Computed example of a mutant assay.
Amino acid sequence: MLTPVVDDDGAPFWEYAARGELRVQACAEPDCGELRFPPRPCCPHCHSFDSEWRRMSGKGRVWSYVVPHPPLLPEYAALAPYNVIVVELADAPRIRLVGNLVSGPEAPLNSVAQDRIRIGAKVQVVFANDEGGEGGSGLPRWVLERP
């Protein structure tokens, strides 16, 4: 499995994800509070440098998807075909995250048949256990709400 490249602005996202929490950066200015993703040092709306991380429900819908042919990432070639979905968060519709639709937290990337993927399908975030079984891997994945 590929590991994410973590920068200073995005590090809290991955720390929360490793604990099984989906959080999004928000402006901490009381008059703003705008959610933003990807994380960045300054609010694009009010230009404040104050931020906080708000817990999301983890629910969303498939906004778009692709099944790359040939696989775009060499590390995933043995798993092809696999899907890549864009999820619009239910509690933050302007926030979209990229991930994979899987049949369960520990399932392989190609565990959902391509013909079952639909734009608009409701999904829920899951986090796979790491190899040691302690906590999540930190990589958000998605399952259908109604399989």
Rank of each mutant, 00 (worst) to 15 (best):
P93S: 12
V123C: 05
G10A: 13
K59F: 10
P39G: 05
R40P: 03
P44M: 07
L79I: 05
N110S: 06
I85A: 11
R23W: 09
S51H: 14
D50T: 01
G60V: 06
P105Y: 08
A26Q: 09
L72Y: 15
D115R: 08
L22A: 00
Q114V: 06
H69K: 12
P71S: 04
D115T: 04
W63L: 09
R61Y: 01
A77D: 08
Q114P: 02
V84W: 14
D91S: 04
R36S: 08
L97S: 01
P38E: 12
C42T: 15
P68R: 00
C27P: 13
M56T: 04
P44V: 02
L101A: 06
S48W: 11
W53Q: 04
I117Y: 10
R116F: 01
D9K: 02
Y82A: 02
A11T: 00
L35V: 09
P12A: 11
I95W: 07
A17M: 12
N110C: 03
Y76S: 01
I119P: 07
R19W: 13
D8C: 00
V84C: 12
C32S: 02
E34L: 13
V126A: 04
L101S: 04
L97F: 01
L72Q: 14
M56G: 00
V125Y: 12
R96D: 11
I85T: 09
V112F: 10
D7H: 10
V84G: 06
R96V: 12
P81R: 03
E52H: 13
D9W: 12
K59C: 03
R55M: 13
P44K: 03
N83G: 04
A80Y: 14
R118C: 01
D91A: 04
V123N: 03
C32M: 06
A11L: 15
D7S: 09
S103F: 14
P71C: 00
S111I: 08
